[in-house]
Computed example of a mutant assay.
Amino acid sequence: MIESSTKVALITGASRGLGRNTALKLAEKGVDVILTYKSGESSARDVVRQIEALGRRAVALQLDIANSKSFGAFAESVKNVLADTWQQTQFDYLVNNAGSGNQASFADTTEDQFDQLVNIHLKGTFFLTQKLLPLIKDGGRIVNTSSGLARFTLPGYAAYAAMKGGIEVLTRYMAKELGPRGIAVNTIAPGAIETDFGGGAARDNPQVNAHIASLTAFGRVGLPDDVGGAVAALLSDGNNWITGQRIEVSGGMML
């Protein structure tokens, strides 16, 4: 029987990239995981197996973060999984990680591209969290995902960065309104990371990689472990007095 004190995190978009790394980092720290995937079921199952190999429990659920109409049914699935797998009614940590990129100049961004970014990054985070609120424990924590691009500017990311700016404002309001329940809400803002995001340019293009490295205080491009470790640290027991904050994880990019 799983103890009622078992900590459980729900991480969206955790079948790959930073979400996957965050799931594994939390599992290493003794946290069980509910992870979501959009279409990569095989990759999600692989993450589940890796978490189980670490001695923790994990469940993968399908979720299209762009489809807010599905959030009610998804919340019901989470409720059932909590009862069946953990004999619990609530979970501890929500990491709103799922997202997608779009590189287009301000002049060339289409309305469809803009709307898709709104649905995934801003509307998705807003209404999924709203639907899951009854399932989050008092004293729990929420981490929203922004980007270094909300602070510094690179041509081609106007719409994407605008959504992340919205996330940062939303985080402060969530922190204020959920404070009476003891729920801490913070934003993690990664810089350029060596993943497949944006076509994998930071990882796979030596010229891009070298240019980004030259812009950071540490002289290198970030790795998934840098971000996953930061999220896990933010959710650790010693950080329960931090809320409403934007924490940039960029290696000091463009200081």
Rank of each mutant, 00 (worst) to 15 (best):
I65D: 12
G40K: 15
K69H: 09
S105Q: 10
A210I: 01
G30C: 07
N239V: 05
G19I: 12
T171A: 11
F152E: 06
V8C: 09
G55V: 05
G251R: 15
I212S: 13
L170V: 06
Y173N: 15
W86V: 03
V31M: 03
N96E: 10
K176Y: 09
E177W: 10
V143N: 08
K137L: 05
A184M: 09
L54Y: 07
A233T: 12
T187G: 05
V221S: 10
F127M: 14
G219M: 08
A184Q: 14
R56T: 03
G148F: 09
G101E: 13
L10Q: 02
G40Q: 15
A14S: 10
P134V: 13
G139S: 13
T153Q: 12
E3D: 13
P134Y: 11
S70E: 15
E177Y: 14
F74E: 06
L135W: 07
P155V: 06
G140V: 05
Q50A: 05
N80Y: 01
E76S: 13
L10N: 00
L154C: 00
G165F: 12
E28M: 08
T129N: 07
L35P: 04
D237M: 00
S214P: 00
A44F: 09
M163C: 14
I142E: 08
A189C: 07
Y157W: 15
Q116W: 04
R45L: 13
G179D: 13
I188Y: 00
D46W: 01
A232S: 14
G40R: 15
A14G: 08
A202L: 05
S214Q: 04
